[in-house]
Design a protein around this nucleic acid. Structure first.
Lengths: 234, 234
DNA sequence: CGTAGATTTGAGTTCTGTCAAATTTTGTGG
DNA sequence: CCACAAAATTTGACAGAACTCAAATCTACG
């Protein structure tokens, strides 16, 4: 059986990590400096958030299993935090000095970590392009496509996926307003792009339609590992 | 004399790099895959750009001396490119397999590269927050502050710094429209936040005023190394 | 000194934000 | 399983910021 992405980077960390099970909205503490904290996401979705002027917040990024959180890779905004978005989640907590030793001793591991960080950087930059270049509707579609590719399960009536983000979370992630997100989401539902399927769970009857409503779908698919889904077997 | 940021990561690369001198708007070729290209910025400013729907472009990020460009850390958008923004610039071109070997053999170098990439990731994320959370005026101020901190030289009449980006570049970087950027920039000039000082060169008479017009100034200062400038010696 | 490209500016339009009220959903305790 | 309170979401009316298009200037350069 193939080792998945999470296991590939977990191995050497296993002996040194503190396992933490989280529930929705739980925060992970972040420390800066030479002894900075490092997290490896193992299960569930997490959000990197930062307080902004006018008492708002921004969701700086979505973290998936296999992702690393290194404090020094987050901007030095007072109050940045990681919060759990999924009901249940698991992270491994490490100290940078420990990881540093592992990296020094194990070039193979070092390269894998570097590749993971490059991948995360690419995602952050793609998100930049989404926010900067797309309309509100396209942005919301982009998020749904991303989550559908990440967590979607094909069923007889369509692609079923989780939406653990609230309207406010979505708004903070996409540089929109919660009211506007609500309007956009309602419009998309009216168009039949998706249907509600129980508590924070959506059903997308024709994924091609959803995919077609965002111009950056090809890049999103390549980043979130769903190229196969876009070209279904005949 | 202290080694600067660029030299710190350059050393081990020196023997393997192809030096390239660029002039304004020159493009650097990017290749993907196991043999991907890697650039180290040595001199000048560069822009990472991506074509977007509706025949637009986005500036995904500004690259400064000391920064690395690794193709796999850029989003898989067809047509991403690096272009020189400064009149003169210098980059070192390398092949990933070569760098990989250096990283494997030299843990100290590996850590420095990792730290640089973490720093760049933090900047990208900060840029996200700027685009997503600030008004047009604040975004333009943020860019000026960043460039002033990076390239500014104190003079008797104020802080003198380069602005190698055109209105269109600025617009593409800040998720605005070139016309809107022009209006904002004119407004800022009228307010006395800066004054033109020759060909692509600006003079900021009172940096505190400029700094004060962007809520994220503290984070920008920490990222772009200008904490001292914000709290001038008495 | 003329031209192509860049920048500025005006007028009108559109999209998104704001505020407030209505409605639905969720969590909790009988 | 039901009732209720709190929280989240939806929706309408209106305001405001940014975009579009087009025309007028300005600049760099040959």
């Amino acid at each position: 059986m193939m080792k998945n992405l999470v296991d590939v980077v977990s191995g050497p960390l296993e002996a040194h990590a503190v396992r933490i099970n989280t529930r929705k909205r739980q925060k992970l503490s972040l420390t800066r400096g030479p002894d900075e904290s490092l997290y490896l996401i193992r299960k569930g979705l997490y959000l990197a958030r930062a307080p902004m002027p006018h008492a708002r917040h921004q969701v700086l990024g979505i973290l998936y299993p296999g992702d690393f959180v290194r404090t020094s890779a987050l901007p030095p905004i007072e109050g940045v935090e990681i919060t759990a978005a999924s009901d249940i989640g698991e992270v491994w907590r490490l100290r940078w000095p420990v990881v540093k030793v592992l990296i020094d001793e194990n070039p193979d591991f070092a390269r894998r970590v570097a590749d993971r960080l490059a991948d995360q950087a690419a995602r952050t930059t793609l998100h930049n392009a989404i926010i900067a270049g797309l309309t509100g509707d396209e942005r919301v579609a982009a998020l749904m496509i991303e989550l559908a590719l990440r967590t979607g399960k094909p069923t007889l009536s369509g692609l079923l996926f989780d939406m653990p983000l609230s309207r406010v979370d979505i708004a903070e992630h996409l540089a929109l307003n919660a009211d506007t997100v609500s309007r956009i989401v309602s419009r998309m539902r009216a168009k039949g792009l998706y249907a509600a399927a129980g508590r924070s769970r959506l059903l997308c009857p024709r994924f091609e339609d959803l995919a077609g409503s965002c111009p950056l779908t090809p890049a999103i698919a390549r980043m979130h590992g769903g190229e196969a889904m876009l070209t279904p077997a005949v």
